[in-house]
Design a protein around this nucleic acid. Structure first.
Lengths: 148, 148
DNA sequence: TTTTCTGCAAACGGTTTGCATCGCT
DNA sequence: AGCGATGCAAACCGTTTGCAGAAAA
């Protein structure tokens, strides 16, 4: 469950010397909603969704906004097994991993880092200077299991 | 260090009722070479490399061959932080993870699954039916550290 | 001869960019 | 007035596809 609020996003825009314009507010609102539902989305999804209430918004602006929000650290990009890229709102702290339902695209964040000592051991054995790691777990959520 | 040989690839084509044609042999040879060096490549890279010795080979054939080799289980797709897709020859067994040098793109496979019990614990806690997971570790290899 | 595979070129889909205009401040 | 942000449409880039012809079997 994301705790992202519209005010946080607007504040971040202002803090960065950017304007919290009407298209940006509209898109931020949509993203906050999706965040509350742990729902993923692509930039294209965002554009389509915002179209309903703000049909004048251009596709490019949706892409640009997602990019900015990712730079702000509000969004995280997830690469699916089929190669598509989607985003979701980061709710946990700094370091976390994703548990993604392959049926409904809901994302649960695993707040604790899984086995950090295992990564340290790999670094030790390989001689690599580890700068980061990414863990993606796929499966079906309880709801979708029940619905099958 | 990959143990993939040209014969293995050609054998797989024949076993699948496909023809080990000239373009396919040329590309397989290149991939075997890259595999021996733990080197990653994109489909486009493959096309360019093969061009030197077989300039008549079409771009589409390179893409098609990579796809087939991936289906055969010889190649694994890795998504980089910058979103690009690359492939590398699988040397370890069924389940493994990647340790990728961000500087030289060399890949080391981590043969043992990292902390499988941690994934089981996550499944337990979340109620998800886990179907798979992917772990990517990024860093700098010893050679590139020394070269800096 | 029959079937698979190939090269070519055009199509494709998601994303980015150039640019004239718009609208905050 | 000035500058950032926008919408539009065209460009872009990696990848896929349709198809007539070439190569294996």
């Amino acid at each position: 469950m994301s705790t992202l609020t519209l005010d946080q996003v607007i504040g971040a825009f202002e803090a960065a010397g950017m304007r919290a314009t009407r298209p940006r507010r509209a898109m931020a609102a949509q993203i906050v909603t999706w965040g509350a539902a742990d729902q993923e989305f692509s930039s294209e999804d965002l554009w389509h969704a915002v179209q309903e209430q703000a049909p004048w918004v251009g596709r490019a602006t949706a892409y640009r906004t997602v990019q900015i929000l990712q730079d702000f650290g509000f969004l995280d990009r997830v690469t699916f097994a089929d190669g598509t890229e989607r985003y979701h709102v980061i709710s946990a702290g700094e370091h976390h991993h994703h548990l993604t339902c392959e049926t409904c695209h809901r994302v649960v964040e695993v707040e604790a880092c899984i086995a950090p000592e295992a990564f340290a051991a790999v670094a030790q054995a390989s001689g690599f200077a580890i700068s980061g790691h990414r863990v993606e777990i796929f499966g079906r959520c309880p709801t979708c299991q029940a619905a099958s």
